[in-house]
Design a protein around this nucleic acid. Structure first.
Length: 396
DNA sequence: TCTGGGGTCCTAGGACCC
DNA sequence: TCTGGGGTCCTAGGACCC
């Protein structure tokens, strides 16, 4: 049977949600209608555009560019800090609202999801009418607009929801692919990023149609095993199912850009300690253990590199994470000027494989971590290790 | 006043085993 | 006169997405 899939995508999510937050807290303005962006903090060297209003977009402001560059395009630009806690509330409200209609939704990110309409069509009726109703309901109940794409698979639904914005519904059924998708530039295709576009252009592929009609053997020379799926995407072929099960994380990582370049390894240790506690807290919340610990560095030339170590015994213990991270750092650090440092826990597993010889010590430490986690949750992170008290930590 | 942070998946090369 | 090769695991890095 032919599937009917919808992709629901919040318009300018962070900016819309901050607009609502401000309105809720007494602001007279709706920043959605002014030259506004959500951006990081230039003082801590995270000054990039995370989301922009439609008027700002019209002046050429793009996501990911520096605030400095955005301001050059729009001198009256206003910037607002992100409020992830509120974003996550709004996100949950939207997914809950959509879930009323079917459990078959896949949460793809904080502001988008897929919905498998196939099974509920007989109950809910025409999909376009349903989409209109859903879109209006989200706006009436929650106050922000979404785009909805309707198609026969996830890829095309996703492409359709991106066509024109805001507050639009588009279809991209199998029989519309040539007319609606093929004329687009190849970089518009989901999965084709900014590194791949120049490579494709070089072999005379400029539109999605060019890619769809390209020769498999020719493409294989440049993209190897990737070429098969690239051609499939360009033809709108995607058989992946809507997966409604909550995603189990494959890895947990945190990284911080430092407010100045650091060359003192002892200073880097402090950040490692901070990061160990952060990822430790998160992994224990998931009830998982990590087999692999990765340390990530970025130097002042923006070169990123990482090293990892596999553990004998998986861990979720702060002290163990920290100690291993220090060992890895010592191995890779060679007096570069460090701009960013991160820790990632990978190869997650459910159970700890117990090693009797050191078991007692670990259990004891683990209990301490758990007590601290509870207190942290209760008293908003007032408990910090002594060495961290003087370490500048950044807001989310 | 230059450039975030959270992920996923893939690839290539080396080590190691049989 | 020659020195396999498949399978698997591990690691580092890259591309992509929001």
């Amino acid at each position: 049977m032919e599937r009917i899939i919808m992709h629901i995508d919040v318009n300018n999510a962070f900016l819309s949600w901050t607009a609502l937050y401000l309105l809720k807290n007494g602001s007279k303005y709706d920043i959605r209608n002014s030259y506004a962006v959500i951006g990081g903090d230039e003082q801590t060297r995270s000054g990039i555009v995370l989301a922009k209003s439609t008027p700002a977009k019209r002046l050429g402001v793009v996501t990911g560019e520096t605030l400095y560059s955005a301001r050059k395009k729009c001198r009256v630009l206003k910037t607002y800090e992100p409020n992830f806690k509120f974003y996550s509330e709004m996100s949950n409200k939207m997914f809950n609202l959509i879930s009323k209609y079917t459990p078959d939704i896949e949460i793809a990110s904080i502001d988008e999801c897929y919905l498998d309409y196939t099974k509920i069509k007989s109950m809910q009726g025409d999909q376009l009418e349903f989409a209109k109703k859903l879109q209006k309901e989200i706006y009436d109940e929650l106050g922000f607009t979404v785009n909805i794409g309707i198609a026969n698979n996830k890829l095309c639904a996703k492409m359709a929801s991106d066509f024109t914005k805001p507050y639009k519904i588009h279809t991209l059924y199998d029989n519309e692919i040539q007319e609606k998708m093929w004329p687009l530039e190849v970089g518009e295709l989901f999965g084709i990023g900014k590194k791949t576009v120049p490579k494709l252009n070089k072999i005379n592929i400029f539109t999605i149609k060019d890619l769809a009609n390209s020769k498999r053997e020719e493409l294989y020379k440049y993209f190897k095993n990737q070429s098969e799926s690239m051609i499939n995407w360009a033809n709108g072929i995607d058989n992946s199912p809507v997966i409604s099960k909550p995603r189990i994380p494959k890895g947990i990582g945190n990284e911080i850009t430092l407010d100045h370049d650091v060359t003192d390894i002892k200073e880097l240790y402090k950040y490692l300690l901070f990061l160990s506690e952060k990822v430790g807290q998160r992994i224990r919340k998931q009830n998982k253990y990590a087999r692999v610990i990765v340390v990530i560095l970025k130097d002042n030339n923006f070169k990123k590199y990482s090293h990892q170590k596999k553990l004998q015994t998986p861990t979720n213990n702060n002290e163990e994470i920290y100690n291993m991270a220090k060992i890895i750092l010592r191995e890779i650090y060679d007096d570069e000027k460090i701009r960013l440092i991160g820790i990632r826990l990978d190869n997650l597993t459910d159970k700890k494989i117990k090693q009797v010889s050191i078991f007692d010590k670990i259990e004891e430490e683990k209990n301490i971590d758990e007590v601290v986690d509870k207190l942290n949750n209760k008293y908003k992170n007032i408990i910090k290790k002594a060495t961290l008290i003087n370490t500048k930590t950044r807001r989310e």
